[in-house]
Every structure is written in structure tokens, then in C-alpha cells.
Amino acid sequence: GTPGLGGGCYVPPKQVWLLAAKAKGLEIAGTFSRRQNQIFMDMTFTNRALTQLSGFAIQLNKNSFGIIPGAQLNVVALNPNQSFDTSLPLSPVGPIQRMDPLTNLQVAIKNNIDVFYFSCIMPIHTLFVEDGVMDKKIYLATWKDISPSNEIQYQISNVTYNTDTISQKLQANNIFTIARRNVEGQDMLYQSLKLTNGIWVLTELKIMPGNTSITLSLKSRAVDVATAIQQSFDLILHN
């Protein structure tokens, strides 16, 4: 399957995670995606060594969201200059250890030559689950219940989409608009999302017609996720 199709979740371009020069000829480029209710680590393995590379396996260190491989790594033996694309399903059911940044993943890759290590950052929107629509009553009660001192506000600039498109793009990434109001020409979107570990986040977007800067307000009982959530809005609304 093509990454990103199906759910319409935003998939960042692959980045080189492991340099061949640092891994005896093994290069790994990768990204993260979410499709069919599952997270994937989409990777391209390239053999830049002069001999065959084989016997690949992967291990993830403990991380903030308990992400572990949901299957064995499937990479064939690679001849020199050969590349292979693989998609590793991930499951959020492993042991938890807080990482900094929050969605940092430490990865170990073994092959017939050696073991190599790298880290990469999971875009947090791949952890937004499909059943993240909060009941309207609960939203209103929770919004009231969380103290204004726990509200975090961000400006997101250079957003060129209109309110409908903003709502659709966010929804494609499991950020759900549960109410929309217009007050004196200003659109207010009330939205919810839920992370794989059950943490709910309530957001409000203020959109002024003709103004490309929009205001994101965020309330959650777990404020630690705020920065990563803001970054996900930023990413989704600029792609």
C-alpha cells in the first residue's frame, strides 16, 4: 500500500536515519505513517557496502508511548547497491519510559556484520486514534473543568486554507471537529483527539477570515504533550 492513502494521514518524506558511513555500508531512510488504524515505520534499506548484507532484525528501546514492533522486520538479503522497501507495523503495548523529546524512538538494527543504533522522532499525529471524537457534553464539562492556567495557546502562522479545509485536513489525521461556531465573522472550531495511551486533548481554533495567523488553544490533563501536539497542527496545516 502507498503510505498515506486510506486514512489520508499526513506522511512526512523519508529522512536518512542511518548513514552508510556510520553503519558499515547499511543506509536506512524512513518515515512514520498511520493507516487502517495502525502505525507503521516505513523504511528503505540500501546496501552501500561491497558485500551482501543479510540477517536483519530490529529492536526498539523503551519509549514514552510503549511503541514496539508489531511483527518481525521483513528485509531480504541485499546485494551491493540494492535497496528494499519495508513497512514495519508498530504496536503501542510495550513497556514505557519517558523520552525527551517525547516521541523520540531509539532503534537498534542487527545484520550479518554488526549491530547499529540510531534515533528518530515519531510525528505524534501517528498516535492519534480513530475513535477520538469526544462526546459534546463531556467536551463542554472537561473544558470547564480544566483550569485556565492549564490552557496553552499558540499562534500558527501562514495558514492559507479556509476553515472547511482546515477541519478536513485535521480530521484526516484524527483531529475531530465536534462543534463549529461563528462569532462576529470569526470561526471557532472545537476539536478533540485521543492518543494511543488514552490521553485526551481538547483544542480550540480561532480563525479570522483574511488572516493567515490562527490561534490554537489546547487543554489536556497531561500538559506534557502540548508542544508535540502544537507541532502536529503546524505540520498538518502546512502540508
Binding site: 459534546k136 457534553k137 463542554l140 473544558w143 462543534a179 461556531r181 461563528n182 462569532v183 462576529e184 470569526q186 471557532m188 472545537y190 480550540e204 480561532k206 488553544s217
Partner: peptide
């Protein structure tokens, strides 16, 4: 059942209070 008009009103009120900084 759930009184939706009441909920709608609550969101309108929330939006009203939040629209002015």
C-alpha cells in the same frame, strides 16, 4: 434523550466568551 439545542447553546456561549481576548 439528549437536548441537543441546549448543547448547541452551550457551544455558542463558549464561543462568545472565547472570541474576545
Amino acid at each position: 434523550g439528549i437536548d441537543d439545542s441546549n448543547l448547541d447553546d452551550s457551544f455558542s456561549k463558549l464561543a462568545q466568551t472565547r472570541s474576545n481576548p
